[in-house]
Amino acid sequence: MRRHWLVTVVMVLALALLAGAACQKAPQQAKYPTKPIEFVVPFNPGGGSDILARNIVAVIEAEKLLPQPVQVVNKAGGSGAVGYGYLAEKKGDPYYIGTVSSSFWTTPLLGGAPFNYTMFTPVAGLCYDSYVLLVRQDSKFASLEDVLNAMKDKPEGLTIGATGVSSDDRVVTYLLEKAANVKFKLVPFQSGGEVMTALLGGHIDVAWANPGEARGQLDAKQARGLAVAAEKRLEGLPDVPTFNEKGINLVFRQLRGVVMPAGAPEDAVKVMEEVLKKVSESPKWKTDYVKRNDLVPTFLGAAEFKTAIEQMNNTYKQVFEELGVLKK
C-alpha cells in the first residue's frame, strides 16, 4: 500500500516536470530569444572581431532590436581554434553566435583545429575589409610601379611585413606575387601593430594593412598607400588606386559576418538574420563602424552568406595548396 502511494507521487511529479518542460519549450519555439545570447569572439578584446561584435551589440541595444541582452565573450587562443571549437560544440543552440573573420577559414585549413566552416550555420555577412599596400612616407618608392620595377632589378626581393604566415597578409602577398610575377621576402610579425612599427622604422620596405588600421599613419603622412586590393577605390582613400587600375588583377578582401553552431533552428536564424539586416541599415552602424574603419558595407543574408563562405574557403584552400601549407 505504501509503495503504491510512493509510485503515485513519483508519477505525478514526473508528469508535472514534463508539463513544465513542455510549457517552457512552447514559447521558446514561438519567439526566439527568450534568454540572453552569448556572442563568442574567438579573439582578444580590441581586435577586429571584437570591434565588430561590440558594434553589433551597441546598435542592437541602441535601437532595441532584441528583447534579450547579447553578451560578448572573448575566447581567444590558437588562432581562433579555442573560440570556434567552443562555439561548434554548442550544436543546434541558437543562443550562441560567433564572429566570422579570416581565421574561420584559415585555421582549419592549416590543421590542428577542432572545427571547420561546415560546423556552423551562416546567419549574415556584414562587410568587407580591404587591404592596402603601404610604404613609409619618405620611402624611395613613390608608386606601385616603383616597387615592382625595383623587384625586377633586385632578384633577392624587397621585404614585406605580414602578421603570421597563414594570415590574409600572406595570402594577398602570394596573390600579388602571382599576378605581378615578382617575389617578396616575407617577414612575419606577431601583430599588425608590430608590422606598422617595423614599416615606420624603415626595417621593412612595404607592408599590408587594413585601411582602418592605417588611418592614423595615413592622415599624419607617415605612411603612403600605393594600391588597394579592392574592386574600386575606397571612399576613405580616394587617392589610392586599385591594383586593377594599375593593370594587376588582384582583388582580395576579408569578409566579416556572424554564424551560429551547426543545426541551429531555422526560425532563430531568421530572427537573427532580420536583426542583423536592421543593424546593417542603421545610421549608427554606418557612422560608428563602417565609416570609422573604412569598410565596404554589404549585407548577405543566410543563403548568400553560405555561398560566400564556400567561395572564400575555396580561395584560401587553393592558395594554401599552392603555398604547400594545406593540411589534408
Partner: peptide
C-alpha cells in the same frame, strides 16, 4: 578607434 579617434601623430 571605437570612439572614432585614430591614434597617431595627428
Amino acid at each position: 578607434m571605437m570612439y572614432g579617434l585614430h591614434p597617431g601623430p595627428l
